[in-house]
C-alpha cells in the first residue's frame, strides 16, 4: 500500500495518454506513465517513487501487439515478460528476460517498464541493443521511430511526456546464434552479479551487459577487442576487459574486483560458445 494518493487514468489511445500527461503536468502533478506498475508499488512504498497522476498504458492497443511486420518483429511495450516468453518469438529475449525477477513477478512486469525502469539491471534491453532494434516513441510531438542504440545511453533517453510503445527488431537478428548467461552470487533467483547477452551476426560477436556497471550497456570498443582475431582468445578478453566502462559496481552482490573476475570467465564462455 502506498502512503500517497494519486489520480489514476486508463487511456485507450496514444493521443489520450499524451493529453492526460500534459494536463497533469500543467497542474503540477508530477505525472508518471505506468503499465505493470511494479516499480510504482515497490519504490513508492519506500518513498523512492512519487506521482499525483498515474497514467496506466496497459489498455492501449499498440502496446499489446506481438507480430511480424515487413521483416520486423514488433513487440508492444505493455506486454508482460511472461507473455513474451510464452510466445517465444525472439529466443534471445526469452532466454534473457526469463531470468528477471521470478516467474510470477514477470506476469506483472512489462517490457516497457523493465526497459524504462529506475532499477539499474533492466536486462530486457540487452537483446534489443544487440539487434540494433528500433524503438517507437510517443509524445507531444507525435509518434517517432528511432534506433535504440542512438537513444539508449545508460537509460532510454525520453523527453518529458514521451513513452515507449513498441520495439521493432529485424528478422535476421531473431534467428542469429546467441547465448545469454546470468551469474548470481548464489542460488538461482535474485539479482545478478552479471548478466551477459551475446549474439553472432555477420561473423562478429556482439555483447551487452547488465549488473556490471550501474546501467546496462553494449560497448563497441569491447566488441572490437573480442573480434580481433589477430590475438589469442586470452588476449582478446584482456583487451575487452580494459574497455569496460566505469564505474564497475561494488556492492553487496559482489566487489568490483570479483565482478571483473566473473566477467573474464563469462567472456571465455561466450567466445567458446560461438567457436
Amino acid at each position: 500500500m502506498l502512503s500517497f494518493d494519486f489520480d489514476y487514468y486508463r487511456p485507450k489511445t496514444l493521443q489520450e495518454a499524451v493529453g492526460l500527461f500534459q494536463n497533469a503536468d500543467r497542474n503540477g502533478k508530477k505525472p508518471m506513465y505506468i503499465s505493470g506498475a511494479t516499480e510504482l508499488l515497490t519504490l513508492g512504498r519506500i518513498n523512492l517513487a512519487f506521482t499525483e497522476a498515474a497514467i496506466d498504458l496497459k489498455d492501449i492497443v499498440e502496446g499489446n501487439v506481438m507480430q511480424f511486420e515487413q521483416g520486423y518483429l514488433v513487440i508492444g511495450a505493455n506486454l508482460t515478460l511472461t507473455k513474451i516468453e510464452e510466445a517465444n518469438l525472439f529466443p534471445l529475449l526469452t532466454n534473457t528476460s526469463s531470468n528477471i525477477a521470478d516467474h510470477t513477478a514477470r506476469g506483472k512486469i512489462t517490457l516497457g517498464g523493465n526497459i524504462c525502469g529506475q532499477i539499474f539491471y533492466r536486462e530486457a534491453v540487452l537483446p534489443f541493443l544487440l539487434a540494433d532494434s528500433q524503438v517507437v516513441i510517443v509524445g507531444p510531438e507525435g509518434v517517432t521511430v528511432k534506433p535504440l542504440n542512438e537513444i539508449f545511453n545508460e537509460q532510454l533517453i525520453l523527453k518529458k511526456g514521451e513513452f515507449l510503445i513498441q520495439v521493432a527488431t529485424d528478422d535476421r537478428y531473431i534467428h542469429a546464434p546467441f547465448i545469454s548467461i546470468k551469474r548470481r552470487q548464489q542460488w538461482e533467483t535474485g539479482y545478478p552479479l552479471i548478466t551477459v547477452a551475446a549474439l553472432k551476426i555477420d561473423g562478429e560477436v556482439r555483447t551487452a551487459f547488465s549488473g556490471l556497471c550501474p546501467f546496462p550497456f553494449r560497448s563497441k570498443k569491447m566488441e572490437a577487442a573480442l573480434n580481433n582475431h589477430e590475438l589469442s582468445v586470452k588476449a582478446r578478453i584482456q583487451s575487452a576487459l580494459a574497455e569496460v566502462p566505469s564505474p564497475i559496481l561494488n556492492d553487496v552482490e559482489g566487489s568490483s574486483e570479483y565482478r571483473l573476475f566473473v566477467l573474464q570467465n563469462l567472456l571465455e564462455d561466450v567466445l567458446g560458445a560461438f567457436d
Binding site: 489514476y8 506498475a37 515497490t42 511472461t82 510470477t104 506476469g107 506483472k108
Partner: peptide, 18 residues
Amino acid sequence: TINVDGWPMKSCLMMAVE
C-alpha cells in the same frame, strides 16, 4: 499470491484499481 485470469499474481504488486 492469488490468481488473476488464471495466472499467478503477487497481490502486493497489483493495485486494487487494476
